[in-house]
């Protein structure tokens, strides 16, 4: 469920009482309701579902996750490689 797509906030405006903004999704720009992420700033990344920003993306955490993935299995790989060489 719940197709939500990350994009970068490019513009923040108040439109007839609601916080709205323009969010750039890899070159596609759409009007998005920012009412639920009042703390958001231009340049922040957010995740959008049916025209509503759900949360600010924690970019630091995203990088950390990727870094953890890239370290996975490294030790074993070296171990595995030397084993192969030996056989």
């Amino acid at each position: 469920m719940c197709l939500a797509v990350p994009g970068r906030v490019e513009e923040i405006v108040e439109k007839s009482g609601i916080l709205m903004g323009k969010v750039n999704f890899g070159g596609i720009v759409k009007d998005v309701c920012l009412a639920y992420v009042p703390e958001i700033a231009i340049g922040d990344y957010t995740i959008v579902h049916v025209g509503f920003a759900l949360t600010r993306i924690d970019e630091e955490s995203a990088l950390k996750t990727l870094e953890a993935f890239s370290k996975m299995g490294l030790l074993e790989e070296e171990f595995g490689a030397s084993e192969e060489a030996a056989s």
Binding site: V5, G26, I28
Partner: peptide
């Protein structure tokens, strides 16, 4: 890129 993004959206 943009077509891909629109598809994602």
């Amino acid at each position: 890129g943009e077509v891909r993004s629109a598809c994602e959206l």
